[in-house]
């Protein structure tokens, strides 16, 4: 349970970090909060020969509002800072709602938003939020930067669109219409443990009370966040009756997720949870949107 030896660098600027990343390429691992990487190193599942510690790169820790009333969050922002930031609660309430579900307070004190997104654990909450909200991720190297939509960023199990020498530096959450309600729910055996299944939903209502736009994304029922696009499409332009939600979730739970049986849950149970959590989330999101519409 002790890590293998490595050379340690703690650059104090993004440019210095990118230079080191370019120089060491595949031999290097970038250390953010370390709440997933360090356990893996303790188990010697990961044995980088070079560790580039980003914890001194203060310029990557920030939460800012965009001109369009979205959010830009620096990759090294601690999960606990995101959780407690009133700007996040105001501008991006789904993100604020999800934060307490991530592991335990001690982990969130150290863990970062960028670290969790890049780690891309299928049971992690932040990738699901990024996909649900149409986030854009900014990836930089010492030769330039590119912006990647969340849907393309998460490629497969623990694999994202970041090459050796590159680094995730920022995630941007665009604004959603004001008449949007949101919800997130998950089922875990123990508080703070990896969830068996989770769901995030967004529902935008028109002035007429009909569903203008909907989004439904599931957690831990596939290698990456599983977006139920057909199910969400069935809701568009409709009143969200119980029957319609049930019908949409049949499609979502039977055709749009890809659960694998493990010691914690059978495939049938995971589909059942997806159906139940999906329904609860859509209903809660719609109720919240309804409150906003009526509040006007």
């Amino acid at each position: 349970m002790k890590p293998a030896p490595f050379s340690y660098f703690a650059p104090e600027s993004l440019n210095a970090a990118l230079e080191l990343a370019a120089e060491h390429g595949y031999d290097a691992k970038l250390l953010a909060g370390g709440q997933s990487l360090v356990p893996a190193m303790n188990f010697r599942l990961v044995q980088p020969t070079v560790l580039i510690d980003l914890n001194q790169v203060d310029e990557l820790a920030y939460v800012r509002e965009t001109e369009q009333r979205g959010l830009r969050i620096g990759a090294m922002t601690r999960q606990r800072s995101v959780e407690c930031d009133p700007l996040v609660a105001e501008v991006c309430p789904l993100l604020a709602e999800v934060m307490p579900h991530i592991a335990h307070p001690q982990i969130r004190n150290r863990g970062t938003i960028g670290g969790s997104l890049v780690h891309s654990d299928p049971a992690a909450e932040l990738p699901v939020v990024a996909v649900a909200l149409d986030a854009t991720l900014t990836v930089r190297s010492n030769s330039g930067q590119r912006r990647v939509p969340a849907l393309d960023f998460f490629q497969s199990l623990f694999t994202v669109d970041v090459a050796a020498g590159e680094m995730l530096v920022e995630v941007e959450f665009p604004p959603w219409s004001a008449r949007t309600g949101y919800a997130f729910q998950e089922v875990a055996r123990r508080h703070g443990d990896y969830a068996l299944v989770g769901a995030a939903a967004l529902v935008t209502l028109g002035e007429d009370g009909l569903c203008e736009r909907a989004r439904l994304v599931f957690l831990n029922v596939g290698d990456v966040p599983m977006e139920a696009r057909h199910a969400a499409g069935m809701l568009r332009g409709q009143r969200l009756t119980e029957e319609l939600i049930e019908e949409a979730l049949n499609v979502a739970a039977e055709e749009e997720i890809d659960p694998v049986a493990d010691i914690h849950a059978t495939v049938a149970y995971q589909r059942h949870l997806a159906r139940v959590l999906g329904r609860r989330c859509l209903q809660e999101a719609e109720a919240r949107a309804q409150q906003i519409v009526e509040g006007r």
Partner: peptide, 22 residues
């Protein structure tokens, strides 16, 4: 590996796992 919490300390006032830091 960060699960049991026995090694929790305060780092600059915040509770963190000391087994997940170098």
């Amino acid at each position: 590996h960060g699960v049991c919490g026995a090694c929790t300390i305060l780092l600059d006032g915040n509770a963190v796992r000391s087994c997940l830091l170098f």
